[in-house]
Design a protein around this nucleic acid. Sequence first.
DNA 1: TTCTCTACTGTGAACGCTCACATACGCAGG
DNA 2: CCTGCGTATGTGAGCGTTCACAGTAGAGAA
Lengths: 343, 343
Amino acid sequence: MTMSNTAGRRKPPTIHDVARVAGVSRGTVSRVLNGGHYVSPAAQEAVNAAIRKTGYVVNRHARSLITGRSDSIGFLLTEPQEKLFEDPNFNVLLRGCTQALAAHDIPLLLMLAGTEDERRRITRYITAGHVDGVLLVSSHSGDPVAEELREAGVPLVQCGKPMGLGSKVSYVAADDRDGARDMVRHLLSLGRRRIGVVTGPLDTPGGVERLAGYKEVLTDGGVEIDERLVVTGDYSRASGAAGAERLLERAPDMDAVFVASDLMAQGVLSALRRAGRRVPEDVSVGGFDDSPAATESAPALTTIRQPWDRISSEMVRVLLAQIGGDDPAAVILPTVLVRRDSA
Amino acid sequence: MTMSNTAGRRKPPTIHDVARVAGVSRGTVSRVLNGGHYVSPAAQEAVNAAIRKTGYVVNRHARSLITGRSDSIGFLLTEPQEKLFEDPNFNVLLRGCTQALAAHDIPLLLMLAGTEDERRRITRYITAGHVDGVLLVSSHSGDPVAEELREAGVPLVQCGKPMGLGSKVSYVAADDRDGARDMVRHLLSLGRRRIGVVTGPLDTPGGVERLAGYKEVLTDGGVEIDERLVVTGDYSRASGAAGAERLLERAPDMDAVFVASDLMAQGVLSALRRAGRRVPEDVSVGGFDDSPAATESAPALTTIRQPWDRISSEMVRVLLAQIGGDDPAAVILPTVLVRRDSA
DNA sequence: TTCTCTACTGTGAACGCTCACATACGCAGG
DNA sequence: CCTGCGTATGTGAGCGTTCACAGTAGAGAA
């Protein structure tokens, strides 16, 4: 990393310049910059005018050097990174977090830890205090990064419920179980009784919880659980198609499928079409996520909307609170059933 | 932005600690950290051992304060941000840039400038010198951000050829025109003669260039340009469907379509299906991008692959070179025709 | 020897900011 | 009158680096 100084950019004004122009001291300028307590209205105004006039922008490095915080936070993805391309939710989340942080004037550092090497590098970077906190996307269980960061005392908020022991780590998640309940209840209300399910990976809380909601509602509704109607996918489109094929093979009388993600549901739709089943006439299909893909499929997917915009803003809120000294917190947000054509 | 210091994180070791442990001075440690010139092998080794022992990580803020560079770069998206969700290429690009930078130990700051407010805030942030350079994604013409940053002397690399006057701004782009040529040549080789085109927005270089390639090959091949076979889309799936409908209406004898993006091509495929045309029997369809969507559609899309991984790494290379003092550079990378089922 | 040159090492200053402290100015109460 | 207190302001120190400069030591040349 060798970068020489760039020619043609002139030195930006410092707090000193502002103080001189405003006719006050550095201290007063600094106080105005940091909330304006103990500053007379006259000085306040003079400083603000001087800031406008000089075009002053605070030098965050100098500030960080003394405050010990970086005023920046990391967005860390430890999933294998193909997920980045397959899952549209990731985009919504990343955008939401970036904007929520921007509102606090905090830059977001994007960190991708696909390989072991990257993981080590990033862990060092974070624990060295170069970010004040971390927004973590990592649904798989046993992720050592989360544990390592937690032990190092780095403020941390996970997206989605962590699997491990209820270790004291903050997280924000949609109510997976309740969303699944809503969908399966909806399928029941349509008169369906042979309801299949394509779950997510069962080492992810989303996979487990959505399956649990499915079983709960069926049991409560007096429908017996048939394990032939339960298959596991990995949230990919292909695994959805494969899952549907397996379901049709094991339970040809299936009249509905609850699919734990929209992407998988797209695969399910293709497989059903190939098998000659009409959706929703022969088989109702319910997805999960309300991703953009949901409206693009034919027929449009009935699905469970996860409130991604709220998830991202809550993640940021919880993280900043934790950085401010609050205890870790768990936030679970309600989902919404979105009725379209597939069920 | 108020963040109190977090409890429970202890002070990281400084260059002083390393020097003490290694039995040398700060200066020597600093020299080892910055390339190790004029350091004896013995001192070198002692310092490295001390670094390992103490777990020292350089404090980038202190370094930046004196060097005047931030050793971080910004990834700036000025497109309306729905593009972020619709366009899978964006993901590939973002990931590629992050990783290419990671190899240089440079963090990437994600900046989204959707609104006017955000634009101003981000421009201030950048011109204040808080990043050493900017990777810019902004295909629309007349983007004032690019101009503003250029005037401020901020090293800048655009993704895609900028529209404006050949102003001296670096960019990295795929060879749009040549890619279009390849595809249309391919369609001609299949015996198609009534070849329609759904272009991108004509205020983007991609839109213009791909259309130019299309016209070039037809003219060279002795096929007369029929303006009824030319419609303009906006890279969205919906605009592809609408475009195909308009084409069919104006030229029912169309036997092929070159679509300027895979996403639009998906819309075209749906529209053709709805109109009862078989692909590729009745109408051949050629896309552009080779996005993940290309293999997911039915039939799988014949398309032009843009070398996104190389685009991102070249963007980073060019930007770092420019930060190092090099002149702005333009890089144009070759595309590849990927034959699948749709043509 | 003495002088120069090269390779290496240590030291003080400075980067731009915040924080703790000192100070100054009313204005109340004793 | 002095004391005390709350508000408002200025000042010095120091955050952890790098950089320029001043050395030091040893080798080779005069």
